[in-house]
Design a protein around this nucleic acid. Structure first.
Length: 585
RNA sequence: GGGCUCGUGGUGUAGAGGCCUAACAUGCCUCCCUGUCACGGAGGAGAUCGCCGGUUCGAAUCCGGUCGGGCCCGCCA
């Protein structure tokens, strides 16, 4: 990648001036070598003692000094070439060196192998960015943006920027609030997404909108989730009543990003559509990693008459017994099994029952509780083979899916089933419109109140009991990439009548809807076209395509896990006069 | 809000009751060195082991608290 010296090859025999940082200095007493680094690469300077002034300057150089060096570009003699590095064939015989700036010894290591802790790297991010990996990341990221823009423009999407100073939205994440000076006691909020604006653009007759949008959310971060601000490729299409149109419009971009841009392989060319409930039942997750199988197998029927108490109790309580078959897991040690048991318990399981097949014989602490027919049935359903192990979950269906879904992931990590060169994409579709809050037991919007319920107004036909409410499907879809949610979208509810109905089911009257979503619901009364869209989390996609597991690695200036920018020291206190101006005491 | 985990010279690590007056690598400083390329050689400086308290004859090491980082749960329409 570093090609400065290669570029200089065409200048052999000519005088040049190079400017950059001292990458390393090798002082042989009577002869000094300096590697100079700029954004394109490295070149070796040779300073002979005959060049008295330059030599004196070179003796005083230290790592990361900024220099300008002039001299003759020459090919190295055959025995002096270094075949191991790009810059090994030429060098500059220096006549003059000017120190443009000096540098203290660096507080972090720029050596790619000796990794400094993240806290220091973030504190000195301006130095960390000098590392080749970070340089490459930033230039790749710029190309990534261009790649997306080129595609969207070719598909005749119109880029529209929407306000950063917007309104607090009652649903969803915590807002960042901005006090208004002109209108005291009132606040702007930074948008969690341009959701309402883009829907208003549809009403405004923008047929296809897109934007690389900054989104702001005041929620605790994760390794794959930035604190504060992040970016979405946000888009919306009018006169679309079927989400399939949106999915079809965007699939080529994502597939090309995987193959052409990132040089990875798609696990399947055809991207599966998996209904939400099916994803939960088969993979124990609404964002399954499909690079490997290990599906959850329902044994509730096969074991309905079992004598094994744990299974029996789960089934009779209306729960489920499910299992995953893990190839090669019979060799797991006792302590490894304990490790996975701890994980299972952390997800709510009481324990982790398992059986293994070794020497064509089922071995297990629970084997004695299983009848011959039950063993046969388990073998048959799970496909347990010599050397494998089957792990069971027995509890409420929800907990069983959660536990086994987590274990499926952990086992895949343990057995190295996640090929970094492969990308598995899937659309998860048909999310529940309403869900019951596990804590309050109350029914609330599952994901997004702006989605169209499948069936429209007919979805709310009386009689409408809780079971029927919970069965309503939202025309909503997520895209999943290697176990990460990378996109969320929906056919929107553009019909005021359906909108009021969707809220009234939860006990909210029209006044509430008008107050909270006035602009949007008002706009829908003036001929809103049906529309649908989605938003891709482009930081996360770039992270996956870059083989990174920490999203901060692919952002120039990220906040740390506490929402602090340790380099700029934000958030910070402000001048009392600023507060006074805003009406604070 | 909760759980787990980490905190030792500038950086990365070792040390897990007495071997520690804290080791190694790298970086830094001084000197030597004309073909190195992460140059080499000799010497040197640099750490009250995050902080506070406790247990103990004795604590970097054990315990409690606290602060800070990381991962996870909650949360993320």
């Amino acid at each position: 990648m570093r090609t400065l010296a290669k570029n200089l090859a065409t200048y052999v025999g000519r005088e040049v001036t190079v400017k950059g940082w001292v990458n390393s200095r090798r002082d042989h007493g009577g002869l000094i070598f300096i590697d100079v680094r700029d954004h394109t690469g490295i070149v070796q300077l040779v300073i002979q003692p005959e060049q008295v002034d330059a030599f004196a300057q070179a003796e005083g150089l230290r790592d990361e000094f900024v220099v300008s060096a002039s001299g003759l570009v020459r090919e190295r003699a055959e025995e002096l070439r270094n075949k191991n590095i790009d810059s090994g064939d030429i060098e500059i015989s220096v006549q003059q060196i000017v120190i443009l700036n000096r540098s203290n010894a660096l507080p972090i290591s720029l050596n790619e192998e000796q990794f400094t802790n993240e806290e220091s790297r973030l504190r000195y991010r301006y130095l960390d960015l000098r590392r080749q990996k970070m340089q490459l990341m930033l230039s790749r990221r710029a190309k990534y943006y261009k790649y997306m823009r080129d595609y969207m423009e070719a598909q005749e999407f119109t880029e529209v920027t929407t306000p950063i100073l917007a309104n607090s939205s009652p649903e969803g994440a915590r807002d960042f609030l901005v006090p208004s000076r002109v209108h005291q006691d009132k606040f702007y909020a930074l948008p969690q997404a341009p959701q309402q604006f883009k829907q208003l653009l549809m009403v405004g007759g923008i047929a296809r909108y897109y934007q690389i949008a900054t989104c702001f959310r005041d929620e605790d971060p994760r390794a794959d989730r930035l604190y504060g601000d992040f970016y979405q490729l946000d888009l919306e299409m009018s006169f679309v009543e079927d989400g399939e149109e949106v999915r079809a419009a965007m699939e080529p971009l994502i597939k090309n990003l995987v193959t052409d841009f990132a040089g990875k392989k798609l696990v399947t060319e055809n991207i599966p559509r998996i209904p939400y409930t099916e994803a939960i039942e088969r993979y124990g997750s609404d964002k399954p990693d499909l690079r490997f199988g290990m599906e959850l197998i329902d044994l509730s029927n096969a074991l309905e008459n079992t004598e094994f108490g744990v299974f029996k109790n789960a089934i009779s309580a209306g729960g489920a017994v499910k299992a995953i078959c893990v190839t090669g897991a019979a060799t797991l040690s006792r302590s490894q099994i304990d490790h996975f048991t701890t994980i299972a318990k952390s997800e709510g399981a009481g324990g982790l029952a398992y059986i293994t097949l070794e020497d064509n014989e089922i071995k297990s602490p629970i084997a004695k509780f299983l009848s011959e027919s039950e063993r046969t049935e388990i073998l048959d359903k799970t496909g347990l083979k010599e050397g494998d192990a089957v792990f069971f979950g027995a509890d409420s269906r929800q907990i069983v899916n959660k536990v086994l879904g987590r274990l499926r992931n952990e086992f895949a990590d343990h057995f190295n089933l996640k090929d970094p060169n492969q990308v598995a994409l899937a659309w998860i579709v048909d999310f529940p419109f309403y869900e019951r809050d596990t804590a309050t037991k109350k029914i609330d919007f599952g994901h997004n109140p702006f989605s169209m319920p499948k069936g429209g107004l007919a979805a709310f036909d009386e009689p409408l009991d809780d079971a029927k409410k919970l069965a309503i499907i939202a025309d909503q879809y997520d895209m999943v990439m290697n176990g990460y949610e990378i996109c969320s979208g929906a056919v929107r509810n553009h019909n005021p009548e359906v909108m009021y109905k969707a809220f009234s089911v939860l006990g909210y009257d029209t006044k509430y809807v008008d107050e909270k979503f006035g602009a949007m619901i008002g706009a829908f009364k003036y001929g809103a076209p049906p529309h649908a869209g989605c938003a891709f989390g482009i930081d996360r996609i770039f992270m996956v395509l870059s083989n990174e597991e920490n999203i901060r690695e692919i952002v120039a200036f990220p906040k740390n896990g506490s929402g602090v920018d340790v380099m700029m020291n934000s958030p910070s206190t402000v001048d009392p006069s600023q507060l006074k101006e805003l009406g604070f005491k």
